[in-house]
């Protein structure tokens, strides 16, 4: 059974703006095949970072979006029913371990805690994955690496990683970039001029100040990029901001009004 390794490789260089020295640190982690955990609020560039690193290291990347109904066999693999018997199908984690890819489990805490335990043998010195049902023990490919991400901000008390899982990873703490950096990201990503991008960033920061006062999460860099894209497309800045920055994040009338006002105050008439 051969897997098309090509489909998992990142073909084009994704745009990623380094915030500190995370690229070098990641490279060091990868050299030693240490598992990596990426934490940070939604839309701050976690997935983009992983994608960029896969491209930079020229390794295939297998991404799994975790959810509550996911079971261990969704990761590892399962037998399928066929007309005359059953057939084994590798799950994404198994595939990655076989071909030597970077396996990225996005929003890992969304999966149930007992599910995530299957990754344990892959993340310590053993680097093996036992397939109980099939009776096979996979030794991970030398290039294999496990990366997980999660957002410590909005999840409930119930959704946290077990200590035993947490302590198998090296970690990066991401946050929204500094104003100047974020401005240049918007300018690069959407092709917007710097002055306008700076205004969008300003509005974004307004909302981030309100976090915990009725907002669970501030306006993410991703949303700012959406707004910039709309403006680039010819949408009036105020409308673009209302549509992509305010309406998605809140249903609270007071907050909506305050943010709308911030938009009006930021763009001169």
């Amino acid at each position: 059974m051969s897997v098309d390794k090509q489909q998992y490789t990142v073909q084009q260089e994704p745009f990623y703006q380094q915030q500190h020295n995370e690229v070098a640190l990641y490279e060091a982690a990868y050299r030693n095949r240490l598992p990596v955990m990426v934490k940070g609020p939604t839309g701050c560039g976690k997935s983009r970072f992983v994608e960029y690193m896969a491209w930079k290291l020229n390794k295939p990347l297998i991404t799994v979006a975790c959810n509550e109904d996911m079971t261990a066999s969704d990761l590892v693999g399962r037998y399928l029913l066929e007309a005359n018997g059953t057939r084994w199908l590798d799950g994404p984690l198994t595939t990655a371990a076989r071909i030597g890819a970077i396996c990225y489990l996005d929003e890992i805490v969304e999966a149930r805690q007992d599910t995530t335990v299957v990754i344990h043998p892959l993340t310590d010195h053993r680097r093996t994955l036992p397939l109980d049902k099939k009776g096979e023990l996979i030794h991970a490919h030398p290039d294999f690496q496990l990366v997980i991400s999660y957002n410590p901000g909005y999840q409930s008390l119930m959704k946290d990683l077990k200590q035993s899982t947490k302590q198998r990873f090296t970690a990066f703490d991401f946050d929204y970039p500094e104003a100047a950096l974020e401005t240049s990201i918007l300018a690069k990503e959407a092709g917007l001029d710097e002055a306008l991008a700076a205004k969008l960033v300003k509005i974004g920061q307004t909302a981030r100040n309100l976090k915990g006062h009725g907002l669970d999460e501030g306006i993410s860099t991703r949303l700012l990029v959406y707004a910039a894209t709309l403006i680039k497309d010819g949408v009036a800045p105020r409308d673009a901001c209302r549509m992509s920055l305010v309406r998605p994040i809140t249903d609270d009338a007071d907050i909506r009004e305050t943010l709308d006002h911030a938009i009006d105050a930021t763009f001169e008439a």
Binding site: L210, I255, T258, L259, A262
Partner: peptide, 13 residues
């Protein structure tokens, strides 16, 4: 009052 409170927080920290 709440709107003004949010205004102070959001726009002026």
């Amino acid at each position: 009052e709440r709107k003004l409170d949010l205004y102070l927080r959001g726009l002026w920290q």
